[in-house]
Design a protein around this nucleic acid. Structure first.
Length: 632
DNA sequence: TCAATCCGTATC
DNA sequence: ATACGGATTGAC
């Protein structure tokens, strides 16, 4: 396969191998070949003794190193991923195989310590079907499961136990998590269960030499367990027996480079191709994971309600709590009284309180156009922000629309947008609870953990620090802003962020959520019912004809290019074309929707049509995305 | 009649 | 993408 980024060249070409290169050119090797007159990089799919090509074969010019970077299994995986997302083999290889670093190829092997005794108690056993799944991993059976973790669950320890069972069955494993902080926790948990040197941690920020060195130790079979961020889904683990994705709804699992695959679906493909067990875990559940369950492809691992009740915090919606705290300090911070009382009570018990706020700069809030006095809701004094309905101002805490605003300082009636991040919220909360430390976590200053002592911990979604024994309480103040985003996944994403924060609260602690109790997403948090929410989400997507209930392709490019691609594609029967809608000045987008059964055919036809276009010189690019993450 | 240019096609 | 061949066009 030559490394040329054109869809119509995404097929094998045959070359001769000279006797001098015979040893170094094997299935999976990197080589350089002459192609259309110039030297290009290429990957060897297989060695053979005959060819279908009529005419002379060129020789492989040289071998690039002597490592077979593709295994038979990853070669098939790269092909399958390329086909599923209408992309090129070499583009997917680029996602999964790190850049070569020659020096790393000759670095020595690292020692492996003795395997410690396995865990005596298995935590997943307190879930229905947990024991059955682990037994299947131990027996090398291709079990597939969607796991709803209990609030407070030590998920790295649970995943480490599952990995240990795969290792004990002489199988390899891959675990993919959203970010570096999750990876650190999982790394620590695996060290306990596997000892030193038995697993490799793969992330993009290691630097090319270390990254390639670790990756090679996996490819060579010295290391059988890989944990990492999304590229680790392709790790060439020998004899793979278990693949795991944690928190599959996190958008860090969505690959931003073509052909835009995502971790959960890549691992599901890998599980289907290899028979490796698959575990999709999280505190929340995506509609996609729910579909795996409802289609019967995966089993559900969930706790009984009684177990859940003992583990869950108490969730209290705050939208109707219009009374502002009477305490003068609280009034100064303009906190809803329930939020204030909850915080005060937890702090008095010497426990930290987690406050989840929108990402800095993420939600522009509003202030007086003249003197920049922050605009406040007349009812609950929450901050006003440009709302979902045509940007009409509304309260970010209680969601009430704010008409007729007047500046309390200067009488001005006009508003301007200002950016309020977590820093401002921290400042306000600090004023409300004098003498209590305020810690912030978010952006490029993320705290891994906070001490179990009275403190206000302000964090943006995904940056919530851990606290041993759990937080005393949590305030989720960005609910309205999250829920009203004009995005298909808004409800799912909101519940995911809330659940991930609420899961850090101790059993019986209080979670105050700044949103109306009547909203189904709020109800799902109150009842801690991520499965029910996902089922409803999936039903809604089915009704609207959106993925994962259907398969959808988004085509983005100049109007002419998009039209040409559409005209050339032999779309499957029943395909529905939606749009075009303008994206910006000279770009537009159309959506093509087909039934799930026609998904593979849709990808194939779009790829063929794109190949036809790129073979001619009409090649104005069109971005083809299957089941895009972002959908208006 | 020949060269410059365009267009389509294959790239092993 | 880029190289090449065949057809086409324009000038001598």
């Amino acid at each position: 396969m030559v490394d040329v980024p054109l869809p119509h060249l995404d097929r094998p070409f045959d070359y001769q191998v000279s006797t001098t290169l015979d040893g170094d050119v094997q299935a999976g090797s990197r080589v350089r070949v002459r192609f259309a007159g110039r030297l290009v990089d290429a990957y060897v799919l297989e060695r053979g003794t005959d060819t279908d090509h009529e005419g002379p074969l060129a020789y492989v010019e040289r071998a690039v190193g002597s490592e077979a970077v593709l295994s038979a299994e990853t070669t098939a995986l790269f092909r399958a991923v390329a086909d599923r997302w209408a992309g090129n083999f070499v583009d997917v290889v680029r996602l999964g195989v790190p850049a070569r670093h020659a020096a790393a190829e000759s670095s020595p092997r690292r020692p492996v310590s003795e395997l410690p005794a396995g865990p005596t108690e298995i935590g997943l056993h307190r879930y229905r079907a947990g024991a059955a799944f682990l037994a299947a991993v131990g027996d090398r059976r291709p079990a597939r499961a969607v796991w709803s973790a209990l609030p407070g669950e030590d998920w790295p320890a649970r995943l480490a136990e599952a990995v240990r069972l795969a290792v004990d069955a002489a199988r390899g494993a891959v675990v993919v998590v959203p970010d570096a902080r999750d990876l650190d926790r999982l790394d620590a948990a695996l060290r306990v269960v596997l000892g030193d040197g038995r697993h490799a941690t793969l992330t993009a920020d290691l630097g090319p030499a270390e990254r390639y060195r670790r990756w090679l130790s996996v490819r060579r079979g010295d290391v059988r367990v890989v944990i990492g961020t999304r590229a680790a889904a392709y790790a060439p683990v020998a004899d793979i027996g278990l693949v795991v994705v944690w928190d599959d709804g996190d958008d860090l699992h969505a690959e931003p480079r073509a052909p835009y695959p995502n971790t959960r679906d890549v691992l599901a493909l890998r599980s289907a191709q290899t028979g490796a067990a698959l575990l999709v875990g999280g505190y929340a559940r995506t509609a996609e994971a729910q579909l795996l369950v409802e289609s019967g492809w995966a089993h559900e691992i969930a706790a009984e309600r009684t177990v859940l009740r003992a583990a869950a915090p108490v969730v209290r919606p705050v939208a109707d709590d219009v009374e502002i705290a009477r305490d003068p300090a609280a009034a100064a911070a303009r906190l809803p009284s329930l939020a204030w009382r909850t915080t005060r009570d937890a702090l008095q018990l010497g426990r930290p309180v987690l406050v989840q706020v929108p990402r800095g700069g993420y939600v522009p809030s509003l202030a007086c156009a003249r003197d920049r006095t922050p605009a406040r809701c007349r009812v609950c004094n929450g901050p006003l922000a440009a709302g979902a309905q045509r940007g009409a101002p509304a309260c970010r805490w209680c969601g009430r629309p704010a008409s007729e605003w007047t500046c309390p300082v200067c009488g001005e009636r006009r508003l301007r947008a200002v950016v309020v991040g977590s820093g401002r919220t921290a400042e306000e909360l600090g004023r409300a609870f004098p003498g209590v430390p305020v810690r912030t976590s978010g952006g490029d200053r993320v705290l891994a953990e906070v001490p179990a002592e009275a403190a206000v911990v302000v964090a943006t979604p995904g940056a919530e620090p851990l606290c041993r024994d759990g937080y005393g309480a949590a305030l989720l103040l960005d609910g309205w802003a999250l829920l009203s985003r004009p995005d298909l996944r808004a409800a799912e994403e909101t519940l995911r962020r809330w659940a991930n924060a609420a899961a850090l609260v101790r059993p019986g602690g209080t979670v105050v959520v700044g949103a109306d109790a009547a909203i189904p997403t709020v109800q799902a948090l109150v009842r801690w019912d991520p499965a029910g929410a996902a089922a409803r989400e999936l039903a809604e997507r089915a009704e609207l004809g959106f993925p994962p209930a259907t398969r959808m392709a988004s085509l983005t490019g100049s109007p002419a290019a998009v039209a040409e691609l559409l005209a050339a594609a032999r779309l499957p029967g029943g395909a529905q074309v939606v749009g075009p809608v303008p994206v910006d000045a000279d770009t537009e987008r159309v959506l093509v929707r087909v039934s799930r059964g026609h998904g593979a055919e849709l990808a194939h036809q779009l790829k063929t049509a794109a190949a036809g276009r790129s073979a001619r010189r009409s090649a104005e690019p069109v971005r083809i995305e299957l089941d895009p993450q972002e959908l208006g």
